[in-house]
């Protein structure tokens, strides 16, 4: 690392020769974590806290009827962040495919997430310079969003809901 406690916030020594090894050692422009970044973090946190507080009165945390195991007319729905997963299950009928869609695919996806740093070892950081990873990432996001939309439309259109 180029910077240390002695140089502190000061600009890096300009005589530094930039090589492939040290180019990412420190950014072009830096700011001290305190106060600038702390203040930004504080703004975001305060915004979130205020949003949570306002929402808890404007739209209180739901509490439906007490659990009834013998119901025949209740429509179970997952929380919104599981919509895409729930929707995915629609596409996998039958014993073999349910296991495949509900367990195997998510497991493989999680393993790939863990392995990501070793799958993408190229020297480039910019998403433009590693199109394969970026395209996969965009595809995953698009798939999740599309599935969420499908789930929402299915839930809205469900008879008797």
């Amino acid at each position: 690392m180029v910077y240390n406690a002695a140089t502190g916030k000061a600009k890096p020594v300009e005589e530094e020769i930039i090589t492939e090894e040290n180019v990412y050692d420190r950014p072009d422009e830096t700011v001290g974590f305190f106060p600038t970044q702390v203040l930004y973090d504080g703004y975001v946190s305060a915004f979130l806290l205020i949003a949570c507080s306002v929402l808890s009165y404007y739209s209180p945390a739901p509490l439906s009827e007490p659990a009834n195991t013998a119901t025949v007319d209740y429509v179970p729905r997952p929380e919104w962040f599981f919509f895409f997963y729930e929707q995915m299950l629609m596409f996998f009928p039958g014993y073999a495919l349910i296991s495949f869609g509900a367990v195997a695919i998510p497991t493989v996806f999680i393993v790939l997430l863990f392995a990501l740093p070793w799958l993408d070892r190229g020297p480039s950081y910019s998403p433009m310079k590693r199109p394969f990873a970026s395209v996969i990432g965009v595809l995953v996001i698009v798939t999740v969003l599309l599935n969420m939309l499908l789930a929402v439309s299915r839930i809205i259109n469900f008879p008797g809901q």
Binding site: M90, P93, G94
Partner: peptide, 20 residues
């Protein structure tokens, strides 16, 4: 109501994702 599985009056599978 969850994923649209369908059965007839005898409980026989008709459509949707249920395996049986």
């Amino acid at each position: 109501p969850c994923h649209g599985g369908l059965y007839d009056i005898n409980g026989t599978y008709e459509g949707g994702p249920p395996p049986r």
